[in-house]
Amino acid sequence: MTCSIAPGKVILFGEHFVVEGYPAIGLAVGLYARTCVEEGDLKIYSRQLGPIDPSSKEAKPYMRIIEEASIRYGCRDRYRIYIDSEIPVGAGMGSSAAVNVSLAHSLLETCGVEFTKEDVSRIAYLGEIMVHGKPSGVDNTLSTYGGLVYYRQGLFKRLNTSLPENTALIVADTGVKRDTGLVVREVLERYRRLGGLGKVIYEVAGRLVEEAVVAIEKGDVSRLGELMIVNHGLLFAMGASAWINDYLVHKMINNGAQGAKLSGAGRGGIVIGIARLENTGKIMEALKTEKVNVYLVKPDHEGVRSINTRISP
């Protein structure tokens, strides 16, 4: 049995605006999906969902990954697959990509072929198509390579830097599910209705991302936090936020976060905040009173890799 681990992600800056060709920054974070693979009769088991029927909709991404490994690398087409994930589902943290990436990696390891991370990301992307239809590719890229990624119009650039050592990210999962496609469409509709004003807002969002890159490189936490607040304001203006997002942003800031914003599609999902380590305890305690799931996460700079821990039913 071979096992692999792959991280989830958050969008630090630029979501929604990226749809119109403006840049965004994503970060791989230390919440993980783990997948183990061994040869045997076809079987898929999830620690969260239980047994998964290989002919079901839920199994389609995994079957597509197995198919591609068989066609391209000569791997067999039947394996026992065990999945365990701590990444919130449907919250915009790349949960499906992390599972697909860890599966592709452990499958190729089991097959015994030579492969690169590029191979893993490409195969995992085929699984993502089964889940999302037309994914951007950022989720599987971040989960495969880890670290910070600047992306624009399908081009990805890994930033050789990190968040300052004395900081951490707080992730608050609202538990509110939303139709991502609907939110994206309605934000775009407002952008088009606003005409020139919408263009100005999007241009500001694009410049904000470039400013964020500079702040990250300088390790300027105060500036980063301020830019996150502005980014949230722009997303609010375009209709991507909801009262729970705005409330949690204020809750984080009022309890010591340098900045906070919704991350992902919005109207629920997750809110992220950046804070100095000495302030994280107070922020976490304040958020827990709101009955939301809260995570203290650090960046993951390794991406997908093999592990020794096994998963079994």
Score class of each variant (00 low, 15 high):
residue 111 C to L: 06
residue 111 C to N: 06
residue 112 G to N: 06
residue 113 V to F: 09
residue 114 E to S: 14
residue 114 E to I: 13
residue 114 E to W: 10
residue 115 F to M: 14
residue 115 F to K: 05
residue 116 T to H: 14
residue 116 T to G: 11
residue 117 K to M: 15
residue 118 E to R: 10
residue 118 E to P: 04
residue 118 E to C: 04
residue 118 E to T: 03
residue 118 E to M: 09
residue 118 E to L: 04
residue 119 D to T: 10
residue 119 D to C: 15
residue 119 D to H: 09
residue 120 V to A: 07
residue 122 R to F: 09
residue 122 R to T: 09
residue 122 R to Y: 14
residue 122 R to N: 13
residue 123 I to A: 01
residue 124 A to L: 13
residue 124 A to T: 15
residue 125 Y to L: 15
residue 125 Y to H: 11
residue 126 L to T: 08
residue 126 L to K: 08
residue 126 L to Y: 13
residue 127 G to W: 06
residue 127 G to N: 01
residue 128 E to P: 08
residue 128 E to K: 13
residue 128 E to G: 15
residue 128 E to N: 11
residue 129 I to H: 08
residue 129 I to S: 08
residue 130 M to T: 09
residue 130 M to W: 04
residue 131 V to P: 01
residue 132 H to A: 11
residue 132 H to T: 14
residue 132 H to P: 10
residue 132 H to M: 13
residue 132 H to Y: 14
residue 132 H to C: 14
residue 133 G to I: 03
residue 133 G to P: 03
residue 133 G to W: 11
residue 134 K to T: 15
residue 134 K to V: 11
residue 135 P to I: 08
residue 136 S to T: 07
residue 136 S to Y: 06
residue 136 S to E: 04
residue 137 G to W: 11
residue 137 G to I: 06
residue 137 G to E: 10
residue 137 G to C: 14
residue 138 V to R: 02
residue 138 V to L: 07
residue 139 D to V: 00
residue 140 N to L: 04
residue 140 N to T: 07
residue 141 T to E: 12
residue 141 T to Y: 11
residue 141 T to C: 13
residue 141 T to S: 13
residue 142 L to C: 02
residue 142 L to D: 00
residue 142 L to Q: 00
residue 143 S to A: 14
residue 144 T to Q: 05
residue 144 T to H: 02
residue 144 T to V: 10
residue 145 Y to D: 02
residue 145 Y to A: 05
residue 145 Y to F: 09
residue 146 G to T: 03
residue 146 G to H: 01
residue 146 G to N: 04
residue 146 G to W: 00
residue 146 G to L: 01
residue 147 G to Q: 09
residue 147 G to C: 12
residue 147 G to K: 02
residue 147 G to Y: 11
